[in-house]
């Protein structure tokens, strides 16, 4: 049996569950806007801004980008985050990833997944992974906001959602969220979403999706 990451961290005598790279980005984050006034000022000249999450969920993130004149590359990426060490550390790392080496191409930035950020951080504790999933969403929002503001509506990327539970109108995105929040079984996902409680016909598809998302994010 593979040792659980949390257990491993304890056995190896690490002070916390977080590794040094995460800690560095948490205690000395890069590219953040230092307060409300700075955020307001930066917002005036930003190419696009995106916001996801809410304080009630425990995580909220706002991200601003500046794009080069040709509209190809992200030149600057600034952010503010309400959340735990994992959320703050992964936003900081994402902002570095999209601006290093002269800036990332927009189409490449749109492809960034939570796992890519976690990899650059050399891993997050398994149960903290869900805290790192807001960064790429906020970034995509900011890019779409830039597309809309600059008359490039044709490039806007909408993440499609498919309705799985026809009675309660629960989508594959809702199931994905539930898995990211730590649900591992049909019962767990039902506790969070009530999927398949009325529309029992969708249960096989739900179970398949749970396996798919567990494999995708934790596999």
């Amino acid at each position: 049996m593979e040792t659980h990451v949390d257990v491993k961290a304890k056995v190896e005598g690490k002070k916390w569950f977080y590794n040094d790279i995460v800690k560095k980005h948490f205690f000395n984050p890069k590219n953040f806007l230092k307060d409300e006034a700075a955020a307001k000022e930066y917002g005036k000249t930003a190419s696009g801004v995106g916001q996801v999450g809410s304080p009630a969920c425990g995580d909220m993130m706002k991200m601003w980008i500046k794009v080069d004149k040709k509209g190809n590359k992200i030149k600057e990426c600034k952010w503010q985050t309400f959340g735990c060490a994992s959320a703050i550390g992964s936003t900081s790392m994402l902002s570095v990833m999209v601006t290093e080496k002269g800036g990332m191409k927009i189409e490449d930035a749109l492809k960034i997944k939570p796992q890519d950020i976690a990899n650059r951080l050399k891993g997050l504790p398994q149960r903290k992974f869900h805290c790192s999933v807001l960064g790429d969403k906020a970034l995509r929002e900011a890019i779409n906001n830039y597309f809309r503001k600059s008359g490039k509506e044709d490039r806007v990327v909408v993440q499609g959602a498919k309705i799985i539970d026809k009675i309660l109108k629960i989508t594959d995105k809702d199931i994905e969220e539930a898995v990211l929040e730590g649900a591992k079984t049909l019962e767990d996902v039902q506790k969070k979403t009530k999927v398949g409680i009325k529309d029992k016909s969708c249960i096989p598809e739900v179970e398949q999706l749970i396996r798919f998302y567990i494999e995708k994010y934790f596999g």
Binding site: W16, Y18, F26, F27, F82, G83, C84, I88, H130, G182
Partner: peptide, 29 residues
């Protein structure tokens, strides 16, 4: 406006041990 785990870790860095009711430190999230 702040999240407990982040505050807990900053305190710990200063040698202060506390605890939080934040979802981020619980096993069930």
């Amino acid at each position: 406006d702040i999240e407990g785990e982040a505050a807990l870790l900053y305190l710990d860095k200063e040698g202060i041990c506390a605890s939080t009711g934040s979802a981020c430190t619980s096993k069930t999230l």
